[in-house]
């Protein structure tokens, strides 16, 4: 991987790395793998545009859009929560992280209804190429959401007491970085799978 992330920053480099430096190995690695998946999705789509367009038409775009808004709101809560924790506004911070968590749960609930609707209609992983991608991409993303919910719960618990050490704030920033990454990936995934014409 990138050796730059391992080394202590030279003095000439100004700035603040959000979260623990090491977590960027994971974040950038994961984002690269998802980028690869997005690329291969369009590659296979190009081989059979008609099938992908017809299958896409059966998706419920409202579910996708509501989930986008939920994740965006959740991310905004996390930004505000980290900011509040930095300023030792403990009550605000824990309320904000709890709200972020609730939005994440909302995402999971919508996803549950969406999968349920698809599976009852007989559309599964092996229906066709489009649906393989639909389930794999949204499924892998959902796995990330689930991990993120655990982290958000952890961040909420931590933020209930005043955080005085820089290390504790860094921990919150690491969790926030992960959660925003989950948001970024969905932001690209949503138009790609649900909306592309």
């Amino acid at each position: 991987m990138n050796s730059a992330v391992d080394m202590p920053l030279p003095k000439t480099m100004k700035g603040h790395v959000p979260g623990e430096t090491g977590i960027w190995v994971f974040v950038l690695g994961d984002m690269s793998v998802f980028a690869l998946m997005f690329g291969t999705f369009l590659y296979y789509r190009a081989l059979d545009v008609d099938l992908y367009m017809r299958s896409q038409a059966t998706l419920n775009q409202n579910f996708g859009a509501i989930n986008t808004l939920l994740l965006l709101a959740s991310s905004w809560f996390v930004v505000m929560g980290v900011d509040a924790a930095r300023q030792r506004r403990t009550r605000a911070a824990s309320t904000l992280f709890a709200s972020a968590f609730v939005c994440g749960i909302g995402f999971a609930v919508v996803k549950f209804f969406e999968y349920h609707e698809k599976i009852s209609a007989g559309l599964t992983l092996t229906t066709n190429g489009f649906y393989s991608y639909y389930y794999m991409l949204t499924g892998l993303h959902f796995a990330h959401v689930s991990i993120g919910l655990v982290l958000l719960g952890f961040m909420w618990a931590k933020s209930r007491k005043p955080l005085t050490e820089a290390k504790q704030i860094m921990l919150l920033e690491s969790g926030a970085t992960y959660w925003h990454m989950v948001d970024v990936l969905w932001i690209v995934l949503f138009p790609l799978i649900y909306l592309l014409k």
Partner: peptide
């Protein structure tokens, strides 16, 4: 989508304050 992704990375993740690499 790319503009949105960049907005989140730079403003929510706070990469805009990060070192240049």
């Amino acid at each position: 989508a790319c503009i949105k992704a960049r907005l989140i990375i730079f403003h929510f993740m706070e990469v805009r304050h990060a070192p240049w690499p």
